[in-house]
Amino acid sequence: MTPSALERDYGPRARRNAHIASLIASAVITAALLYAGYLFSQAGGFAANKWSPFLSLNLWKFLGAGLVETFKIAIVDAVLSVVVGAIVALGQVSKHRSLRWPAIVYSECFRGLPTLLLILFMYFAFPAFGINVSAYWAVVIGSAAYNSAVLSNVFKAGILSLDRGQVEASYSIGLTEWETMRLIVAPQAFQRMLPSVVAQMVVLFKDSSLGFFIGYEELLRRTQIIGAFSENLIQSYMVAGLLYFVLCYAISRFARVLERTNVSKGGTVAATT
């Protein structure tokens, strides 16, 4: 991370003060962490029988299979969200009112609803219409409904961030609306919104954990099962938290790299949720 102007160019006295403050702060933080660790160990949190289950290969096979399910949700969800989001975005910027309004209503409504509620609706309410939705598809479709609405707004912002003159120029050389979108607007907008899209993938990945609520055995549900079985819930949650952190952090690092490589090409657009 490059330091901002606020963090640079200090004089010698300010730099010395910052170093002293840094030492004090690290001492305080270390003390607080050690104290938390002490309390945790006093309560038996580091007891060997609480952590030894994680040495078993079978446990990791069980957890790994849950992680595979998490990826199965996230990947299908991502593809669906991008495709639907792109269609809704095209609707939102369309000249035709009959296309524009449904797209705007879609994006406003699904962005305003909790993903969990959408998933529960898929799972519990669709059977009332005679359509049985499996837990897997309830998570994927519920989450895609939300994420496609968010992504459609990212795409829309990307499309509208282009200079209006480009569209006018392409109309004036006789390209149709669709050709303008495909040849002129989309390729440029794509680059600007790529970082926001990848950042939204972190949210989407985390949403896979909502399968937990309807009993779908993804990573978090399986963690819960392990914790209940070996009576080490808190340790299991810590392991799950660490796994989620590693995976999500990898995705957001990737977003940051994209942002850096694209920033010279006319900036990027941000997501509004």
Partner: peptide, 8 residues
Amino acid sequence: RSMPITVL
């Protein structure tokens, strides 16, 4: 930011 809120 890298943690599902459910886990928390």
